[in-house]
């Protein structure tokens, strides 16, 4: 889950898509954002570097399973972030180990899960690249803000660039609307413009919903807290669409 812009609904999509995927497989959700919002979406808060992703990035001998929080939701384990991740990343960048750090840290865990969902911060910096480097597929989102569409296109260019550098082979599986305001015209215009770029626009549009901010307070993504709501159905549909786009299930 990536975008060059913050506040576009990435973490909310990551949390809900992870919860939706966990209905049919074993899922690990990984927070690669020092803001630690993905963990908080499930009520998980790390105390420091030692009980969060930073520990695994910094020290290859740390047992990954010991840092993972098990069963934070049905079928779902979580590897939380902590603000100290920022300093860990800076240090690793200085020694040249940052780009491959997330990939290395997750490798011992991969056999245990059907899906690993990584949330990143809203930038195309070195920590985000480390997450992309660990991923097979990248999903990005937009809102009715034209800047978010630019962000999606910039992400596509970023992926292209880092494929050239052989930092990643991740594929852009989709561009989804994470906050669809059906009353407003802007979202339609932004979607229309994105459709003209040839990027893989997904058909699922997550509606703007008051349930979403409430679910953060309740520390339960809407897919779990309001499973019959329209917005939960949209996240589930988005997860299905992503599975099809990644070739993990037939269309």
């Amino acid at each position: 889950m990536c975008s060059s812009k913050g506040g576009v609904g990435k973490t909310t999509v990551a949390a809900n898509v992870a919860a939706a995927l966990a209905r049919s497989g074993r899922v690990l959700a990984v927070d690669v954002d020092p803001q630690d919002s993905l963990g908080r979406a499930f009520g998980v808060v790390a105390k420091g570097r030692d009980d969060s992703l930073g520990a695994l990035l910094e020290d290859g001998s740390v047992e990954a399973r010991a840092v993972v929080r098990h069963a934070v939701a049905p079928g779902l384990d979580l590897l939380p972030a902590h603000p100290s991740l920022e300093a860990v990343a800076t240090q690793l960048a200085a020694t040249g180990g940052l780009t491959t750090s997330v990939r290395r840290a997750l490798r011992p865990l991969l056999g245990e899960y059907d899906h690993v969902v990584l949330d990143t911060r809203g930038d195309l910096g070195a920590l985000t690249l480390a997450a992309v480097c660990a991923a097979d597929s990248v999903l990005t989102v937009f809102t009715s803000d034209p800047g978010s569409a630019l962000g999606a296109v910039r992400l596509a260019a970023f992926l292209e660039q880092h494929r050239t550098y052989e930092n990643t082979s991740a594929v852009l599986v989709g561009v989804a609307c994470a906050v669809w305001d059906r009353q407003g015209r802007a979202a339609r215009d932004v979607a229309g413009a994105l459709a003209g770029t040839g990027l893989p626009l997904l058909s699922t549009r997550v509606p703007l919903s008051r349930r979403v901010p409430s679910s953060v307070l309740a520390k339960r993504p809407v897919v779990l807290s309001s499973p019959t709501s329209a917005v939960a159905a949209a996240y589930v549909a988005l997860a299905d669409e992503v599975l099809v786009a990644t070739g993990k299930v037939p269309a």
Partner: peptide, 25 residues
Amino acid sequence: LLQDLRAVVPAHASVPVPVASAPPP
């Protein structure tokens, strides 16, 4: 906006960022 976006879309427009095989619905 489309014009602005096209200015940033990866250079190889005919071979854009590799996308998954399923066409967008």
